Amino acid sequence: MKNPYRKLMLLGAAASLAIVGGCGGGGGGADDDTPEAAAFRYRQAVMRLLAAKMGPIGAMSRGEVPTDEEVFAKNVNDLLTIAGMIPEGFGADVSNVPAASAALPEVWTSMDDFSQRAADLQMAVEGLAAAVASGGFASGQGLVQSTAGNCGACHRNYRQRDE
């Protein structure tokens, strides 16, 4: 049974993370109410939520932590909502990116490709979720690496590398 409040709870968590994540640091701070800063805070929150859900999924699939079918399935289902939230933070009208952003300008100059990569991630998560729904962890485990690969494919082209 689907929880009708799941999306609302995730949106609330994203908003909370955006507010907390926007406090302090250069560019895009909580006191900056420009559309660019708001989009930056939103992107930060969504990406942190993705990482928070994908981390345990990946660790379980690699056997680094014990498998918990319930946690695995919940995190996969949460990814369905979160992955669909990515495009909203990268609107075509956002071109003045705060200095603290890891997003490269190529996101906005190659929006069609970026949007396709976001759609590819969404499709991969949908496939993973369908596998988990039909056969649990054992059915989804083999799809985790390719799902994570969609994250990496986008990051290689559109995210500033840590030095």
Rank of each mutant, 00 (worst) to 15 (best):
residue 41 R to M: 08
residue 62 R to P: 05
residue 58 G to D: 09
residue 70 E to A: 15
residue 68 D to R: 11
residue 15 A to G: 14
residue 63 G to C: 09
residue 56 P to H: 06
residue 57 I to A: 01
residue 27 G to T: 07
residue 66 P to K: 04
residue 67 T to P: 07
residue 41 R to P: 09
residue 71 V to T: 14
residue 61 S to D: 04
residue 19 I to E: 05
residue 58 G to R: 07
residue 48 R to Y: 12
residue 55 G to L: 11
residue 72 F to T: 06
residue 57 I to E: 00
residue 11 L to N: 11
residue 17 L to G: 09
residue 54 M to H: 03
residue 21 G to H: 05
residue 33 D to H: 04
residue 65 V to P: 01
residue 17 L to R: 13
residue 4 P to Y: 09
residue 47 M to E: 09
residue 65 V to I: 15
residue 33 D to K: 04
residue 67 T to H: 03
residue 57 I to N: 00
residue 63 G to W: 10
residue 3 N to M: 05
residue 71 V to M: 07
residue 48 R to H: 11
residue 8 L to Y: 03
residue 71 V to E: 10
residue 51 A to N: 10
residue 48 R to M: 07
residue 2 K to D: 15
residue 9 M to K: 12
residue 46 V to A: 02
residue 60 M to S: 03
residue 32 D to K: 05
residue 5 Y to K: 13
residue 20 V to G: 03
residue 55 G to T: 14
residue 57 I to D: 00
residue 64 E to S: 12
residue 7 K to L: 14
residue 28 G to N: 02
residue 68 D to M: 10
residue 69 E to G: 03
residue 12 G to H: 06
residue 26 G to T: 13
residue 14 A to G: 02
residue 20 V to R: 01
residue 44 Q to N: 13
residue 55 G to C: 00
residue 5 Y to E: 15
residue 75 N to H: 12
residue 61 S to M: 04
residue 22 G to D: 06
residue 34 T to H: 07
residue 15 A to V: 09
residue 2 K to A: 13
residue 48 R to E: 07
residue 6 R to G: 01
residue 35 P to W: 01
residue 6 R to H: 03
residue 67 T to N: 12
residue 49 L to A: 08
residue 40 F to C: 02
residue 15 A to P: 06
residue 48 R to Q: 08
residue 26 G to L: 11
residue 72 F to P: 00
residue 40 F to G: 00
residue 75 N to I: 08
residue 69 E to R: 06
residue 71 V to Y: 05
residue 66 P to Y: 07
